[in-house]
Nucleic acid binder design. Sequence first.
DNA 1: TACACAATGTTATATTATAACAATTAACAC
DNA 2: GTGTTAATTGTTATAATATAACATTGTGTA
Lengths: 132, 132
Amino acid sequence: MLKQETLSKNQQIVLDYIEKVNEPIKAYSILHNLQKKGIKAPLQVYRALDKLVKIGKIHKIESRNAFVACKNSNCQISKATAFSICESCEEVSEISDSKLSKYLKNFQDKAGMKFNKYNLEFFGLCKKCSVK
Amino acid sequence: MLKQETLSKNQQIVLDYIEKVNEPIKAYSILHNLQKKGIKAPLQVYRALDKLVKIGKIHKIESRNAFVACKNSNCQISKATAFSICESCEEVSEISDSKLSKYLKNFQDKAGMKFNKYNLEFFGLCKKCSVK
DNA sequence: TACACAATGTTATATTATAACAATTAACAC
DNA sequence: GTGTTAATTGTTATAATATAACATTGTGTA
Ligand SMILES: [Zn+2]
Ligand SMILES: [Zn+2]
Ligand SMILES: [Zn+2]
Ligand SMILES: [Zn+2]
């Protein structure tokens, strides 16, 4: 079978919702909000999330246990992710910076480990929260 | 009161253990292994972990929900962390690279957000696992 | 058709983390 | 020392996040 190009029913339902809310959202919040669409058990959510992460449609914000739609249609799907996180309002933005991603992709550690993926999370205060 | 310099009893017990095992360890594993030292409830562990993270003695590996002792006595305590993680054997090393940390500390995102902290996790195969 | 594999449904359970409240201890000013 | 404050501890219960196990159904391909 060829690599699938179309999402399954549950995968599409979950992705549509994550893209709609347009901010990081937690698995059980997805679950609670999609009851009427037939998403009734945690596994329906987690299975869809797993797949969507794998194919790069969404990313997991590890420090928040939350999921967000990918904003970089052309990003190195799920292999090179960077986010900025406001510790006050919890706003999260995906960073798209070719110099940064180039730098990190080429980074070589002293132990000679071969990297194929990274995740970077910056924390601070967004503009709105800085002036408060 | 001045910033405390000595750890409390539970904090010291937990830190000693994390430093001894010398690899990422999970909260409930700590709990199970320190029963005889009087650590009997999750909160005793989590409170100590919180404090130890705050003062930079340990770091949390976010993608693994695990905690590891800091190897960089002179690192920007808990404000600038980078790790390499082998996806095969789960070996984790703390990266100490002044060029990398300088680059990231100075990184400026397009939204003008002011960062005061970051966490970077690289994934790949360690040398041992590469040759398998 | 038969086969392989992906996806689903379902129940139960495992793992990770915090709420709430009372009691105790340590540091400091006077 | 006394009083005051903040940090730490103890304890029970519960919340939040995630996976195991197994049966079933759908989908593409030979
Ligand atoms: Zn992306
Ligand atoms: Zn903010
Ligand atoms: Zn460190
Ligand atoms: Zn390895």
